[in-house]
Write a protein that binds this DNA or RNA. Structure first.
Lengths: 333, 333
DNA sequence: CTGTTAGCGCATTCAC
DNA sequence: GTGAATGCGCTAACAG
C-alpha cells in the first residue's frame, strides 16, 4: 500500500540510495550495468520519487503558480493552457489562482504561495505592485502577463495594445464613422490605458479631437460593458460607433444594444478587443482585434523557465502582435 | 532573506520548537503566556510554516487536484472556480490539470499527482475508469464530477441529465416541432448517453418514435457540433429542430446554421444544453438548459472534504438540477 | 564511479 | 504542560 522509497529500490537493485538518486536524476554519470539494474528495480516496484522530500531537500518545488485576475474570462483560461502545456513538458505542475481583480486576494495568494516554495510565478497583476515586488525581492522567478506592473523590472509578456487599438479605431474611421466612442477598463490597468491611448491617437491622426464625453471606464466585465454602453447611448450627439477594449465588456455592450433595438452597424458600428468563439456567426458577425492568447501563455512560460535557469539575466519584455478581423459589425455599406 | 524556520521563532520566544509547533497547530494545549509569546515572535519574524516540510512529515499535502477534460469549456472553468472558492476557505490550494478528453493524458497526470502526495482529487473522468480506480485503490480521496465513472463506487456530483434533456425535448414538441434531431457527445461518456436517453424518452412520451437518422454523436467541441449539424441538414426528410447536448457543440451548430442561411426557429428550432453568456442577446435569443455550474464545483469540494475527513463513509452521489430557459430560438409563433 | 553521512523543516513520540 | 530526540524521503557533500 505504502509507496516504495528510494531505499526499497536501492535494496532491490543491490546498490546504495545515492546511486539510485543519481540514476534517477541523471546528474552524475553511473556505470551502465548499475544504471540498468536501478531502472529495472524502479520499474518493477512502480517507484515514483516523492516530490515533497525531493523538494524539501532542494528547497524548491516543481510547481508553478499562475495568478490570473478573472477565471471566467476565456482570455485568461486560454492563456493558462499555453502556460500549462509548456510547463508540463518541462516537468512542472501548474497551480491556478484567481485574484478576481482584487489586490487583497492577490496578496493573500502570493503570501501563501511564497511559503509554499513555488518555483515560479506568472501573474496578471492587479494595480497594487507591492504584492509582486515582494515576490521579486524574495528572489522568486516572476513573469508579469497581460499588464505591465508599475515601477517593477520583471519579465513581462504583453500584446501591442496601443497598436491594436489604433488599428481598430482607424478601421472605424475609414468606414466613415465619426463619433466613435471607447469603452475601456479601469484606468489603473496598463491594458486599459494603452488601448485608450491607441484609440485617441488614431482619432487625432485622422484630424478628430478625442471627445471625453465618448470615453468610459468600466470594470472589464460584462455588466460594466452593459452599463457603459447604456450610458454612452444617452450622450448627445450620440456615438455612431464604439470600440470596446475587452471581450467580456463587448458581450455587455452588445447585449445593451440588442436590448435597445439598435441596429449594428447602421446605427452603431462595433469593434471588440480580443476574440470570442461566436464572433463569426452572430448577426452581424463581430469585428475583433484578436490576441494570440495561447501563445501569450507559452511565451510567459518560456520566459519563466529562462528566469529560473538564470536568475541574473536582465528582465525582458516580449510583445506579441494583435490582428484586426474586420467583419460586418463595423462595415458601412 | 531566507525564510525563518520554527527554530528561529522558538529562539525568539524563548521556548522549544515543539512548543512553537503545538501553538501553530493548536492541537495540544499550551500555557497562555507561552502561546502569546510564540504568536508574537511568529508575527514579528513574518514566519510562515514551510509546507513542504510539514507535508513531508505528515505525508500529505494541502493540495487538491482538479482534472478537467476541457479547459477551454467555460462549463469546466466555472466549476473549477466553485472548487477553488471552497478549497481556499479550507486551506487547500488547487492544482488544475487539463486532460483534453484524452485517457492517456489523464493517466499521466494522475500518476504524477499520485506521487505528489496530493490530498484530494476532483476529476471529470474520461472513459477509461482504470485511471480513477488506481487512485481510489491507493486510498486517495476522489470525487468524480459531471460524469459517472463506470463500475467504480466513488463520490460523484452530477446534474439530472436525463431530466434536463427530457424537459428540453418536451418543450420543442410542445412548440409544434416534430422532426427533432439530437446532437450528443461521445457514447462512452455518461453525460452524452443520459442526455440522449432523456431526449428519446420525451419523444416516446409524445408518441413519436425516435429516429436514428436524427441522432448524431460528436466530440463535445465546437467543430464536432458544426459537422454534426451539417450532416443533419442533409437528412431527408430534414429535421425541423435540434437539441444540442453541450455548449461548445451548440456554438458549432449555430455557426453551421448561420453559414447555411437557415432561419431560427422558422426552419430549425434550437435548444442547447448548458448556458452561455451571449444566449440572451443573439438573435434570436438561444434557449438553453442551464446547469448550476459553480454550485457543482462547490458541491464536489464539499464532498471531497467530507471524504478526506472520513475515508470510510459510504460513497455518495449528489444530483443537482437543471433549469430550462425557453427563449425565441425554440418558439413557434 | 560508488557508498556513507548528514540535514532540508517540521510534527510527533517519549520522558520529565 | 514542556523540551529533547527522532525520522518523513530525498539529494549533496565528502570519502574512498
Amino acid at each position: 500500500m505504502a509507496m516504495p522509497t528510494i531505499y526499497d529500490v536501492a535494496r532491490h537493485a543491490g546498490v546504495s540510495p545515492a546511486t539510485v538518486s543519481r540514476v534517477l536524476n541523471g546528474r552524475s554519470t553511473v556505470d551502465a550495468g548499475l544504471r540498468d539494474r536501478v531502472n529495472a528495480a524502479a520499474a518493477q516496484l512502480g517507484y515514483r520519487p516523492n516530490s515533497l522530500a525531493r523538494n524539501l531537500r532542494r528547497s524548491t518545488t516543481n510547481l508553478w503558480a499562475v495568478v490570473i485576475s478573472d477565471i471566467n474570462n476565456p482570455f485568461f483560461t486560454a492563456l493558462v493552457r499555453g502556460v500549462e502545456d509548456v510547463g508540463q513538458g518541462l516537468g512542472y505542475s501548474v497551480v491556478l489562482c484567481n485574484s478576481d481583480e482584487n489586490p487583497d486576494k492577490e496578496a493573500d495568494y502570493l503570501r501563501a504561495l511564497l511559503a509554499d516554495q513555488i518555483s515560479g510565478f506568472i501573474v496578471s497583476p492587479t494595480s497594487r505592485t507591492e504584492n509582486l515586488a515582494a515576490l521579486h525581492e524574495a528572489g522568486r522567478a516572476v513573469v508579469a502577463i497581460d499588464r505591465r506592473p508599475r515601477n517593477l523590472a520583471v519579465d513581462t509578456v504583453l500584446v501591442d495594445n496601443e497598436h491594436g487599438a489604433r488599428e481598430a479605431t482607424t478601421h472605424l474611421i475609414e468606414q466613415g464613422f465619426r463619433r466613435i466612442a471607447c469603452i475601456t477598463g479601469p484606468a489603473r490597468l496598463s491594458t486599459a490605458s494603452r488601448r485608450l491611448r491607441g484609440y485617441r491617437s488614431a482619432l487625432r491622426a485622422a484630424g478628430i479631437e478625442p471627445d471625453p464625453a465618448l470615453e468610459r471606464h468600466a470594470d472589464f466585465r460584462q455588466r460594466g460593458g452593459y452599463t457603459a454602453m447604456a450610458n454612452l447611448l444617452a450622450a448627445r450627439p450620440a456615438p455612431d460607433a464604439v470600440f470596446v477594449t475587452n471581450n467580456l465588456m463587448t458581450v455587455g455592450a452588445l447585449e445593451c444594444l440588442a436590448d435597445n433595438d439598435i441596429r449594428i452597424p447602421d446605427q452603431v458600428g462595433v469593434v471588440g478587443f480580443d476574440d470570442v468563439p461566436w464572433a463569426t456567426f452572430i448577426r452581424p458577425p463581430l469585428s475583433t482585434v484578436t490576441q494570440p492568447t495561447y501563445e501569450l501563455g507559452r511565451t510567459a512560460a518560456t520566459l519563466l523557465k529562462a528566469r529560473i535557469d538564470d536568475p541574473d539575466r536582465p528582465p525582458e519584455t516580449a510583445t506579441l502582435h494583435t490582428t484586426l478581423h474586420a467583419r460586418a459589425s463595423s462595415r458601412r455599406p
